[in-house]
Amino acid sequence: MITILAAVLTLTILGLLFGLLLAVGSKIFAVEQDERIPMVQECLPGANCGGCGYAGCANLAEAIVNGEAAVNTCPVGGAETAQKIAEIMGVEAGETVKMTAYVRCSGGSNASRKYDYEGAIDCLAALKVAGGPLECTFGCLGYGSCAKVCPNDAISIVDGKAVVNSDACIACGKCVGACPRNIIAIVPANNKTHVACVSKAKGGDVRKICQVGCIGCGICAKNCPHEAITVVDFVARIDYSKCQDCGKCAEVCPRKIITK
């Protein structure tokens, strides 16, 4: 009996001692934290995707409360999250447009190849071998480095090139950084008109190596009623602040590389 009592008592006393130590410790070493930080963190999605540029949702919450980041910094949560955070912070949310990643290349099997690549399944690795297997020095290699970093499995490789499922895309921008050829861009999700080529090669050269490359003919720019398209370095570019998504350019494009 006495043994049991001794054991129980010892453990109880030790437990109480450590509990007391922690209680005292939390008082002595209390770090004053703004009570809005956990409230803001509650509103954030909690995926810790890093799309905002901070290490995780907790870091962003801290930055928002400290005034270092805007209330609509989170690209994943969108307007709803921004609104909730704005209420906590007592400011106006401003307008947020849902963005999505877009792969500006429609090459894939339409682009001709220099050689058959049999190596590590990685775009950068493929690019190190004589500049990649594609004749085109701008196009998508299709080895899925972007798909690998996507936290939401929104990117798939279809017909030798990366395709973004804009419904699943949270516009975190990880694929933009992962693409060694800088093909992926973050664009407004409600705008469906995009130029699916980034080739700066001259029209004649593009014709030889890719059936779906931009030759910089400028027909789209001439026909755009809103002057949203410019042709720079032999490739058409859309200014999304002017584009009304009318789709006129997609109709007139002789190479059918402007998607609608």
């Binding site: 030790l14 130590l21 922690l22 410790g25």
Partner: peptide
């Protein structure tokens, strides 16, 4: 009470780590 080592050590380690965390956060 040597047979209590395991349970006592778990108690010590758990609370110690918590305490060290508190300490580091401040200091």
């Amino acid at each position: 009470l040597m047979y209590m080592q395991t349970v006592v050590f778990i108690l010590i380690i758990a609370s110690l780590v918590q305490f060290v965390e508190l300490f580091l956060m401040k200091m």
